[in-house]
Design a protein around this nucleic acid. Structure first.
Lengths: 187, 187
DNA sequence: ACTACTATTAGTACCTAGTCTTAATACTTC
DNA sequence: GAAGTATTAAGACTAGGTACTAATAGTAGT
């Protein structure tokens, strides 16, 4: 039996979400209805036409690129920074950051936030991580917001080394702590 | 004076690169030539039409998303593993992994490879990183291949802790070394 | 000045993937 | 059998093109 209108529209939404590049004709084939029906469905569901959908995807990418130009260098969003002193960033743990089995964030994401914050806080052309001593004190779950706070402990101009401490919290609870020894480039 | 053909085509390339969402008509206005001239130019320069351009942007975005999916499980590709003993993975440093300024890989990628290898080598339902002591001994550049080797040093059944050492190499040269204290879940 | 050549413009037919509108069926439910 | 919903069809129109033919403008060489 051909599916009911409701069911078809439910599937339509999913299908288009998964592949926005599909035409009405292909959809009509897939659901064995006429093209007109698909168009009525899209009208009812306010799903734009193929070209609009593609454009939206493309524009989003463009936005992301623009937005990620400064951010690209940092995992998480920097919300406060005082060069060579302190910096704070937030990182929202989403579905893609966790282990499927238990929804616990993979360590390297939490590390990446802290590490890139340590890079960002350094007031120089470029900084690289030389050493790090880290500890995950509590596991972070999906949908939690991690707030990382970096503090510059010591700057050794001679050696070009800087010691940065980063503590990350979820609801004021420490989830990660690390000491990063950063190598800094003088321009 | 209206620009020469060469000059116009040079600018055309740039203009479209900067804003792929521009139509021939708008371009014709901008260069005060006819639409046909713009189309001839595009033909000569093999620049696809607006809709194709938009589609390309959109598809690239989709590819990127797909590419980051496998990253979900392990960073790098595991090429050998003996549970609770050793494991080896390779990770090719691409454009998206490096700092734009100097093509040096961001620390967290190298860390992520090592960390996820440490997770993978553990023969249990799940492992989490508790602590880590790491050192970046040489910077890794774009297009280099990092080979990470994990070795389980000690298993403390009581505490449910496992100590894993990971050394990463580029051309047999040590670029990263770390000791990971992993917390393992018994099912 | 005449010719050759490139560059530009114009016009037409056709394409895709639609929109918007009107109208005819088909299916169900009472 | 009528009413209401769902589906399909048909036709006119749109944007942003391609592909092709043909006319015109400008410029250099002899």
């Amino acid at each position: 039996m051909r599916k009911s209108k409701k069911e078809r529209q439910r599937l339509l939404i999913e299908t288009i979400k998964e592949n926005p590049f599909i035409t009405d004709e292909e959809l009509a084939d897939q659901f064995t209805v006429s093209v007109q029906t698909i168009r009525l469905d899209r009208l009812e569901l306010s799903i734009p036409e193929l070209r609009e959908r593609i454009k939206n995807v493309a524009e989003k990418r463009f936005d992301d690129e623009v937005r990620s130009l400064p951010i690209d260098e940092v995992i998480g969003e920097i919300i406060d920074i005082e060069l060579d002193q302190t910096a704070i960033s937030i990182f929202d743990v989403k579905h893609e950051h966790v282990f499927k089995r238990n929804q616990i964030a993979r360590g390297h994401h939490v590390f990446a936030q802290a590490n890139s914050l340590a890079v960002a806080v350094i007031n120089d052309e470029l900084a690289l991580t030389a050493k790090a001593n880290i500890q995950f004190t509590r596991s972070v779950k999906e949908n939690e917001r991690v707030i990382a706070k970096a503090k510059v402990l010591r700057i050794d101009e001679e050696k070009g080394r800087t010691l940065v401490e980063v503590n990350s919290f979820v609801n004021n609870e420490l989830v990660f702590t690390g000491e990063f020894e950063m190598y800094r480039y003088k321009k």
